[in-house]
Amino acid sequence: MVKKIFGQCYIWLILILMYLPVLVLIAFSFTEATNVGEWTGFSFNLFPRLFQSAEIMTALANTVIIAISSSLVATILGSLGAVGAYYSKKRMRNAIDLATQIPVVNAEIVVAFSLTVMFVFIGNIINTYMFSFWTLLIGHVCLSIPFVYTSVKPKLQQMDPSLYEAALDLGASPSQALGKVVVPEIMPGVLSGFLLSITLSLDDFIVTAFTRGSGLLSGDKKIETLSTLVQAKIKKGPIPPEMRALTTVLFVIVILAVIGVTIYRNQQAKKIRVRRAF
C-alpha cells in the first residue's frame, strides 16, 4: 500500500516537472506581458495576434510542407528498401540492416555537417550554390529513412510467407500478389514509419539550419521553419508572446492526439477480446 502511494506520487511528481515549462507558458498565453512571470491581466488577444503574424504562419506552413514531402519520400524509399531487403540473400540483407543502423545512432549534427560539407564540395566542383529546398528535403529524408525501414521490417518478418505463394497459386500475377497481399500486411508498419518521419521532421532544428537554402514560402530568403524561427527569436530574448499562444495550440493538438490514440487502442483491444471470445 505504502509502495503504491509512494509510486504514484513519484510518477505524478516527475510528470508535473516535465510539463512545468510548457504549462507555465500556456498559463501566460492568456496575458499580453512580454516576459513569463509578469501578469498584466487576462486576455485572449495573443491568439488573434498569433494567426495574424505572417512570420509565424509562413514558418508553420514551411514546416508542414517539408514534413509531409520528406516523410512521403522517406516512407516510399524506406518501405521499398525493407521489402527488397527481405527478399534479398541473407548476406545482402544483413549488410543493409547494418547500414541502416548507422544513421540511427549517428549524431544529428554529424549528419547535418557531413551533408553540408558534401554539398559545398560538389558546389565547388560544378561552381554553383547547391543549397535550396532540395538539399533540405534530402537532409530530412536522411533523418527519417532508417526509422521507416526499421518499422516495416518486423511486419515483413511476421507475415506468413505462404500467403504470397497462395495468391500466386490462385492465379494472381506476381505484382498483383505483391500489391494485394504483401502491401496490406506491411501497411501498419508503413504508417507508423510515416508518422515517425513526420514527428522527426517537425522537431528538427540542426539539419534544417545546415542544409536549407532559399525557397518555398520564404521566397528569396532562407527557408524558415518553426524550429529555426523560434531559435532566432529566443537567441535575442524571451519567447515572443505570440509563440506562447502557439504553444497552447500545439499542446491542445497533442492532448487530443493522445486521447484519440488511447480510444483507438482500447477499441482494438476490445476487438481482439471479442475475437478471442468466439
Binding site: Y19, V24, L202, L226, P238, I239, L250, V254, A257
Partner: peptide, 16 residues
Amino acid sequence: PMWINFVLRTGATRDL
C-alpha cells in the same frame, strides 16, 4: 512532450 516543438520547449524551460 516530444511532440511539441523541441526548440520551443527549450525556450520554455529557459524562460521558466
